[in-house]
């Protein structure tokens, strides 16, 4: 697979390591009221879609960027690649 890195352009997926569902960006507040229940959901529960999936890739043999890659799990088509830090910042700003 080729991942079109937002800073570096198209790179071979061999340079990356895969973590999983980008829902890991939505970390609940560890001091919140129902923290244990919300963290159980956050840590253990994952969707497994046949289709578009937002997921985290780490450019380990590259610039050490964490990326959010939107990939179709049925065809491996990649429709978007974003810097994870940008995604998190944008979400905070939107809240």
């Amino acid at each position: 697979m080729i991942i079109d890195h937002p800073l570096l352009g198209p790179r071979d997926s061999d340079e990356f390591t895969y973590l999983g569902d980008a829902s890991l960006l939505d970390r609940p507040d560890g001091l919140g009221e129902d923290a244990a229940a919300r963290f159980a959901e956050y840590v253990y529960m994952r969707d497994n879609p046949a289709g578009l999936h937002r997921e985290l890739w780490f450019h380990a043999a590259g610039d050490l960027s964490w990326l959010v890659v939107t990939r179709n799990t049925a065809t491996h088509e990649i429709t978007a690649v974003e810097l994870a830090s940008d995604v998190t910042r944008a979400r905070r700003a939107g809240k």
Binding site: T17, L19, L24, L25, R27, L56, F58, A60, L64, S65, W66, L83, A84, S85, D86, T88, R89, R92
Partner: peptide, 14 residues
Amino acid sequence: FQHLEFVRQCLRPE
């Protein structure tokens, strides 16, 4: 190190 970069970029970019 990978974990720390995850925390830095994905959870606490501010």
